[in-house]
Amino acid sequence: MTLLELDCVTKRFGRVTVAESLSLEVAETELLGVVGPNGAGKTSLFSIISGDLEPDEGRVVFAGQVINRLGSASRCRLGIGRTYQVPRPFERMTVFENVLVAAQEGAGLRGRASGEQAYSSLETTGLAADANRPAGSLGLLSRKRLEMARALATRPRLLLLDEVAAGLTDPEVSELVAIVRWARSGASGAQPVAVVWVEHVVRALSGTTDRLICLDSGSVIADGRPEDVLADPAVRDVFLGTDEVTPARAQAEGPEVMHRESPTAAQQHSAQQHGAQQHSAQSPSARSLGTQPVGGQ
């Protein structure tokens, strides 16, 4: 059964189109990976689903209800939980309080039930031992776990993960992947959830997702089994060179580096330009990107 449906969604900022009659379906309990180069519209897609952006055209349907005009708080209460790429902890509150707000507001729990839900989310994400620490004292990996714990405590039916792997080392990424698997399986006592996972580091997704889509210039250019999508020539075009670069970079830079976006972005843009020159006939979207002046360089 379809849980989330995007129906011909378009969103523009002036002349920049971040979603171009985008249509997408996510089934209940499915794990969908979303990849694409910088500026492909991944985060915008995410914001359209989570309610931070309202689409200009098209419909967003969740569990049979059109949610175009609902704010992010209301969508969360309906069952769309999200994490942010750069964690947004409530720094002066304790870890437990961070998650307790989510259980009370997002899941609508009260009193004892909210405490139990919050604590069980902390256990799922391995943060139980830090429950009484101020969230501001956590390191990056723990902050990412806290993002996930908070999202899980809202008892989502759909979980949106935004670049969870960004800034983490390989072993750390594996830990988070294990948490996602564990949370999805329903073994933690909660209902099973569908996951939409946007990731820049393609490697974190492969082997984890059932289905992968690739975005470029606000459109879906490939959709299917992960290995098929990654083998797709159109996908290889937009990613040319980058899927080899990224794992090595992630290891070399370690967990503290949060500003990886800019050098990677510059590299990807140059990769896109390169690709556009070579394959401009196949990939009109890449060509249009290539002709624009690139600010990142």
Partner: peptide
């Protein structure tokens, strides 16, 4: 009160508070 927890969360990060379902 329960609302107080929301207020404290809004103090620390308003966008985060909204994303966990708080009607800010």
């Amino acid at each position: 009160s329960r609302l107080g927890l929301v207020l404290t969360a809004v103090r620390d990060n308003e966008v985060g508070a909204r994303s966990v379902g708080a009607h800010v």
